[in-house]
Amino acid sequence: MALLSGQNLACVKQDRILFENINFSIDSSELLYVRGQNGAGKTSLLRILVGLADPAEGTIEYKQQNIQQANELYCQDLVYFGHKLGLSLNLNAIENLRFWCQLNQVTTSESELYELLANLGLVGLEDVMVSQLSAGQQRRVALARLWLKASAKLWILDEPFTALDVQGIALLRNKMIQHLSEGGAIIITSHQTLDVDYPTSELVLEYRI
């Protein structure tokens, strides 16, 4: 029984078919690596998978239910990390994460948040406005969600390694393997080689003219 599956997915942007007839399914403890050139439609595919955009054709099912119908359950089990970080530039890291936790009904304490940010290499930057942080530091704050929402079963990550330094990438890789070994599933796009010590299935999107 597949966790998330897509049948016959197609996406059309500005009269150009980005992709069509995409079929995939992912089960718990599986890692799906979506590959393709710039403009092949990776981000569009992921946005369709999380339900932010509607596919031109095809259906997506989460636990055998259409994601529109099972929206509440799907949202509970999902963490989406997109190109836009979802951090307010005029709030600090703690305020941003606290708000996200309240929104996703994740109970956490102030000290846990501080500890987590310390683990992510952001000691002393907790009270700094996000707009003052570097690009990599902002991404680290946003990635903290993966640690916070322990109940999430499915991660959908769009280029999570961008702007991260070597330690950041290692931290994220370890967290991904931990998530997978605990029965979670991950769908990821990346231009870097994934280099994760875990069996990976691939979905290749061709760039079409």
Partner: peptide, 17 residues
């Protein structure tokens, strides 16, 4: 505007609220 540009709106929509 700001929520759209920084992606907070996406996270709001995916929170199930």
């Amino acid at each position: 505007r700001d929520d759209f540009q920084d992606g907070t709106l996406e996270q709001l929509m995916l929170s199930g609220a």
